[in-house]
Simulated assay, not measured.
Amino acid sequence: MAKEMMKLVAAFILVLNLCMYIIVCATAGWALNRAIEHEIITGLETPLPNPYWAVYFPMGNAATGFFIIFALIAGVVGAASCLSGLHHLRSWTGDNLVSAALTAWGLTLLAMGLACKEIDLHGRNSRLKTVESFVIILSATQLVYVAVLILSHR
């Protein structure tokens, strides 16, 4: 009975995380696309602005570029981890999924740290605040999911 309850809790958190990771990917993808479309175009004799970043973000602050790239990576890895978790729910044997969930959680924590730095620096728009919020919430829910997986396979 307890094992079935843990399986239901894991399924709920897994679906919730999958939806949130998709939202993070979509919003961070929008920000990256906007940055690429607003690339600094200079002539041959025009010097590049100082400081020049490889990916110029016309919104946000100095942490935005790093945050968006790591949020996008964490979102893709997290969504892939959730999709493999849906397959894992059917068999529910062994603890081979814990490593994928831990990898996704680690990348989400890295993006969360950059989100906290971006919040500290101020000067961002509502879409960036959305990505920050979802990444911070995902760091907690992914930790709960990892804990449920570890406790249920003991």
Rank of each mutant, 00 (worst) to 15 (best):
L128F: 01
T42F: 06
T42L: 13
G60F: 00
P49H: 13
M112K: 04
T103L: 15
C82Y: 03
V9C: 05
N125G: 07
I73Q: 14
T103H: 04
G29T: 05
F70N: 06
V135T: 14
A100Q: 14
I13T: 15
N33V: 13
F66H: 03
T93V: 10
H87M: 09
S81P: 02
A31C: 03
M20A: 14
L83R: 03
W53E: 06
P51M: 07
I22Q: 11
L128R: 00
W30D: 09
A2T: 10
R127Q: 12
L86Y: 02
Y21L: 03
T93Y: 10
F134D: 10
I23P: 00
P58D: 14
G85A: 07
L128T: 08
S84F: 08
A140H: 06
H88F: 14
S152D: 13
F70P: 00
L72P: 01
E132K: 01
S152V: 01
L110V: 14
S126V: 07
G94H: 07
I136A: 09
G85F: 06
Y21N: 11
A104S: 15
E132G: 01
L138M: 14
A31L: 03
F57S: 04
W105T: 08
E39G: 05
A147R: 00
L128A: 05
R154M: 08
A74Q: 12
C116Q: 08
D120V: 09
K7C: 00
A63S: 13
V76H: 08
C116N: 10
A2G: 08
E37A: 10
A104W: 04
H38W: 06
Y52N: 12
A111P: 00
A71C: 03
G85L: 07
L89P: 07
G43W: 01
H38C: 08
S133R: 06
Y145A: 02
A111H: 05
L97H: 08
A111Y: 05
S152A: 15
K129M: 13
E45S: 12
A74P: 02
E39L: 09
L128S: 04
A80V: 12
E4D: 10
F70Q: 10
A54P: 00
I68K: 02
I22L: 12
V148R: 01
S99D: 07
K3L: 15
S126K: 10
L14C: 06
F57H: 04
V146D: 09
Q142I: 03
F70L: 11
I23K: 08
A80R: 02
N125H: 11
K117C: 12
G113L: 15
I69S: 06
Y56S: 07
G65Y: 04
F67L: 14
D120F: 13
D120Q: 07
H153K: 14
H87Y: 08
A147N: 00
A147M: 10
K7H: 11
L102S: 09
L18K: 01
F70M: 09
Y52S: 08
G75I: 02
D95I: 01
H122E: 15
E118Y: 06
L109K: 13
L143N: 03
A35Q: 02
S139P: 01
T141L: 11
I150Y: 10
P49K: 09
Y56F: 13
L16V: 09
L151K: 01
I136C: 03
T103F: 15
E132W: 01
I150R: 15
